[in-house]
Nucleic acid binder design. Sequence first.
DNA 1: GCCGTTTTCGGCCCGACTGTTTTCAGTCG
Length: 573
Amino acid sequence: MAVRNQEIADLFNRLADLLEVEDANPFRVRAYRNAARVIGSLSPSLSDLVADGEDLTHYPGIGDDLADKIRTIVTTGELPDLREVEHRVPAELSDLMHIKGLGPKRVKALYQELGIDSLDQLEAAARQGRIRQLEGFGAKTEQSLLEGIEYLRGGGERRTLLGEAEEVAERLKAHLEGVEGAKLLEVAGSYRRRKETVGDLDILVACADAKPIMDAFVGYDEVAEVASRGETRSTVYLRSGLQVDLRVVPRESYGAALHYFTGSQAHNVAVRQRGVSRGYKINEYGVFQGESRLAGTTEAEVYATVGLDWIPPELRENRGEIEAAVAGELPCLVEQSDLRGDLHCHTRATDGGQSPREMAEAARERGYDYLAITDHSRRVAMAHGLDADRLRAQMAEIDRLNDELSDITLLKGCEVDILEDGSLDLPDDALSELDLAVCSVHYQLDLPRSQQTERILKAMDNPYCSLLGHATGRQINEREPMDVDMERIIAGATERGVVLEVNAQPARLDLRDEHCRMARDYGARLAIATDAHNADNLGLIRFGVGQARRGWLRAEDVINTWDLAGLRRALER
DNA sequence: GCCGTTTTCGGCCCGACTGTTTTCAGTCG
C-alpha cells in the first residue's frame, strides 16, 4: 500500500512537535514544518516519485536530508528519527500541542512537573486544580485548557467550507461596513485566496479610530464568545463555531496589512526574505528601510519594493508565483466575467428543482450565451435517471425551447454514469444525438487504484465522452476522493480531447487546485461548471472560478469562456 | 534542516494579546 503524501507530512509534523518539546533548534523544527506543508499540498504522489527515482530536492524546503527521509518513509513506512525521539519523549505529547493555548514550553512543563502525557491525564489534572499550582499557570489557564480539550474532542479542528464561510463573512462584513469611519474593509486570509476550506476568518479594516469598529465587532449578534480584545486586534467565536479575527490598521498601512493577513504564510515568508535580502523590513505596517517607510498604502507598492508585480491572492501559496512574478510571467487568470455559459446542470426530469425553461431563463439573466442541460442517466436511480427514451423526449423539448427562446441556446446534454467496467450508461446511438456528454462516476468509488484509473480511461475512450465530471468524486469533509492516478487521468484526457470539469459545488471543487495546475501544464482543456440542481445554483460558478484561478488557469484554458461556435468546435473529438 | 543578489557558512519573518506576573514568557497567526 503506497504511503500517501499526507501521511508523510503528518510524520514530519509529529517529529517537529516532539523536537520542539525537547527544545531543539527552532530552525530545524521549522524546516520539518515547512516540508510538511509543501508535501501536504503536493499533487503528485511522493510514493510514485520515489518509485520513479525522481529528484525530490527541487521541491522547496526539501533538501538532501529530507529527501532521504522521504525515501525511507516510502520504502519502510517509518521515520526512524521519529522513533528515536519517541524513546526520549512520549509520542502523545504531540497531541497535547493541538490544544489551543498549549505550546511546546507548557507541554514540557506539564510532562516534567506532573507527568502528564495524554488528554485524559491533562483533563484529570485540570479538574483536580493541580495545574494552577505550576509556575506560569493559573486558574484561568486551567479553565481554558479544559475548554480546549472539549473543543478538540468535538472535532474542533475541522475546517469550514468556503461556501459556508462566505455566508457568515458577507453578513459580518455588511454589519461592519455600517460603522462610521470604516472606509476600507476586506476579508483577508485563506478566504481571500479562495481556498476550498477556511480555518477562520481574518477581517482587516483601515480607519483612524479603532474603538467604534471594535465595539461593533465584539457586539455583533452572532458572537458567542470574545476570546481576546485589544486596541488593534480582537478575536471572537461566532455561534457557528467559526473563529473571526479583526485587525484595525491606519490607512497608510492598509496595503501592507492586507498583504500580511492574506498570506499564505509560506508566501509571506518568501516575500519577506526578498525584503531582508534588500535590507528592508516588511511587516503589517509597511516596508521599512531603517526608520524610513518605503511603502504600505497598497499591496502593489509592497510587491514593487521587492521587485515583483502584484500577485493575485489565489496564487499566493509559494508554489512558483514569486518566480513567475520575477520573470514577469504571471498568468492572466480566468475571471467570472469571461464565462459565456454553464455546461453541467440538472432539471426536474431527474434530481433538479426546475424545468429546462426556468434554467434557461436563469442562465440568460446571468448574461450567458448557452447552457447545457445534463440530467443523470438511468444508473442513478435515486435521481430517477434518464433512459434513452426519456432522454430523447428531453432533447425534443430542448429543440422546441431553442426555437422559442432568444439570447440563449440550450445544449442537449446528459450526465452519463461511468459504470464499473468503464462502459457508459447509455447506448452510443443515443449519445451520438447529444451536443455533449458529461461522464461521471457515482458508484463503486472504492475500487483499487489501478482498476479505478483504467475504468475512467476506458470511459474516456468512448468518442461521445465530452467531459469528465467531478473526476475524483470527493466531497470535502464528507467523502475521500477515489484512489486514482490523476496524472494518468489528466494525460489520458488530454490525448483523447476530453475536457476536464472543474466542478464548482463548494463541497466538491473537483478538480482540486493542484490538479487544475497539472492539467494546464499538460495542455488539457477544462470547463468550469456548477452541477446546478436549481436556478440559484448557477451562482455557485464563483467557487469554481476561484478554484480554477488557484490552479493558474487562464481564460483560454477554459472552453466555456468561448462563444457558442468556439465551444462546439472544442467539444468535437 | 534549508538555502544562496549574505552563496557551502551563517543566517533563518515579526508583532499583538493573554495570563501571570510586576517586566515578561508563551502562544498565536
